[in-house]
Structures are given as structure tokens and as C-alpha cells.
């Protein structure tokens, strides 16, 4: 019986370090390069969470990859025919306990962070949010501003004021998604669902449908604008009034 010897772990640790470093760089770079411009408090939180989780995942993923590389480099049988039996190791309690502890700690961290973020999203501090009624129908979004009799297919929002979207549908289920603000909720027929967010950056943003809703689902988009409160008031006043 041939026993495979313990190989030096230096290479493993080097690989671990290098892959972790690459992972951390990607964790910071990719979300900022590719995610849509963050235009609300929720979108900023989304970006931070994305980067943080990626950084946490980097050493774990790197550990597994470095382990696989270490096996491929050192424990591959290079002879002909059937490899000889390896040392018949069945358990390694210390490793098992370390692994379980580490994964439990990481899970708890991710959970605590996520629950905290969820709580901060839900604790709407504003007592006077701007209410916007959102209605989805195949395949168009319409927005109305209660109290002003204004209805529009473009979504105008004032900067730095909390918005409460009250979302419903006229026909099938749609998915109301304010892309740059990191919030989405389904528009269900016969029910009103709500979400809150606070736009904090002036500019153009997009609204898309993210729940499959039939033939023209792919084209169910709307454009939105975050404007100064003064501009918002004057836009609202300039709109045709619906009775």
C-alpha cells in the first residue's frame, strides 16, 4: 500500500492569497463598473451590500479554488494504470469543526448585515412622503399623483423627498422596477402593494417590468426624471388635469 505523503502547503497559501486578491479587486470594481447609476438611498445600500458580500466571498472561494489547484498539482496520479490506494483517512475532526465554525460565522455575518439593511429600508422616517400611484397594464406604466389629478407615462420625482409608490395592475401581474433606485415590487390586479425610496441624485432613470406579462413584456419600459423640488412643482402644475 502506497501512501501519498503530505505535501508542503506553501503553494496552496500563495494560490489562496493571489486568488483572494484578484477576487477582492473584482468585488470592488465589477459592481461599480456595471451596476446602473445609483440614484437613491436604497440603490447606494444595494451597491455597498454587493461589494461587501463579494469581498467576504473572495477568501472562501479562493480557498476552494486553491485547494482544487493543490490537489491537481500534488495529488494527481501520474503513473500508468490503476493508482495505488491512498492513506485511508476517513475523518479529520479539527478540519470539520473549523470549516463549520467558519461557514457559520460568515453566514451569521451575512444575515446580520442583510437583516440590518432590510430594517433600515423599512424604517421610513418621513411622515410626509410623496405618494405616487403606479398602475401597470399590458404593456404600459402610468403614474398619477394623488391630490393633483395628474396622470403621466413619465415618472417625475423631486430630489431628497421620500416617495411612496402604491402599485397595482389593471390586468395581469407586472413587476414594477425602478432600476436606478434598487427597488421593485409586483403590480398585482385587485391589490395595492407599496414600496418606499428616497431619490438623492438629479438625473434620468429607468422603470422596467421585471415580471413576465405577455406579448410585449420586453418593451414595457418608462422613463423617469429626478428633478429639484421647484421644478417638480412647476412640472406638476403644467400637466393636464384629469378629472
Amino acid at each position: 500500500m502506497a501512501t501519498s505523503e503530505k505535501k508542503s502547503l506553501t503553494g496552496f497559501f500563495w494560490a489562496w492569497g493571489i486568488i483572494t486578491a484578484v477576487g477582492v479587486v473584482l468585488s470592488i470594481w465589477l459592481p461599480q463598473r456595471y451596476m446602473p447609476e445609483a440614484m437613491s438611498n436604497d440603490a447606494h445600500l444595494t451597491m455597498t451590500t454587493m461589494i461587501l458580500f463579494s469581498i467576504c466571498a473572495a477568501p472562501v472561494a479562493a480557498g476552494v479554488y486553491a485547494g482544487a489547484l493543490h490537489i491537481l498539482r500534488n495529488y494527481r496520479y501520474r503513473g500508468e494504470g490503476v493508482p495505488p490506494a491512498a492513506e485511508q483517512i476517513r475523518e479529520h475532526t479539527k478540519l470539520l469543526v473549523t470549516w463549520l465554525t467558519a461557514s457559520a460565522i460568515l453566514t451569521v455575518f451575512v444575515l446580520v448585515w442583510g437583516l440590518g439593511a432590510l430594517a433600515s429600508e423599512n424604517s421610513n422616517t418621513s411622515s410626509n412622503p410623496l405618494v405616487v400611484d403606479v398602475t401597470g397594464q399590458q404593456w404600459i406604466w402610468s403614474f398619477s399623483y394623488p391630490g393633483s389629478h395628474v396622470q403621466s407615462n413619465e415618472l417625475y420625482l423631486p430630489e431628497n423627498r421620500e416617495v411612496e409608490f402604491r402599485v397595482t395592475s389593471e390586468d395581469v401581474t407586472h413587476g414594477f422596477w425602478v432600476v436606478n433606485m434598487g427597488v421593485q415590487v409586483d403590480a398585482n390586479p385587485g391589490t395595492i402593494t407599496t414600496i418606499h425610496t428616497t431619490p438623492d441624485k438629479l438625473g434620468v432613470f429607468e422603470v422596467r417590468c421585471e415580471q413576465f406579462c405577455g406579448l410585449n413584456h420586453a418593451f414595457m419600459d418608462a422613463v423617469g426624471y429626478v428633478v429639484t423640488p421647484q421644478k417638480f412643482t412647476s412640472w406638476l402644475a403644467a400637466q393636464p388635469q384629469q378629472s
Partner: peptide, 28 residues
């Protein structure tokens, strides 16, 4: 969210078992 993230623990064990089995083996 809690129940879902707990899944990462048994899933992590899958990796441990695979890597642990191959580690110090005569990998064919």
C-alpha cells in the same frame, strides 16, 4: 432570508467532503 442563507452551511459541507476526499488521495 434566514432560512435561505442557512443553506450555505450544508452546501459548504459538500465542498469540504469533495475536497477532503480528494486531498492526499492518488487522484486518477
Amino acid at each position: 432570508m434566514v432560512t435561505t442563507e442557512l443553506i450555505s452551511i450544508p452546501t459548504g459541507i459538500f465542498f469540504l467532503v469533495l475536497i477532503g476526499t480528494l486531498w492526499r488521495g492518488s487522484v486518477w
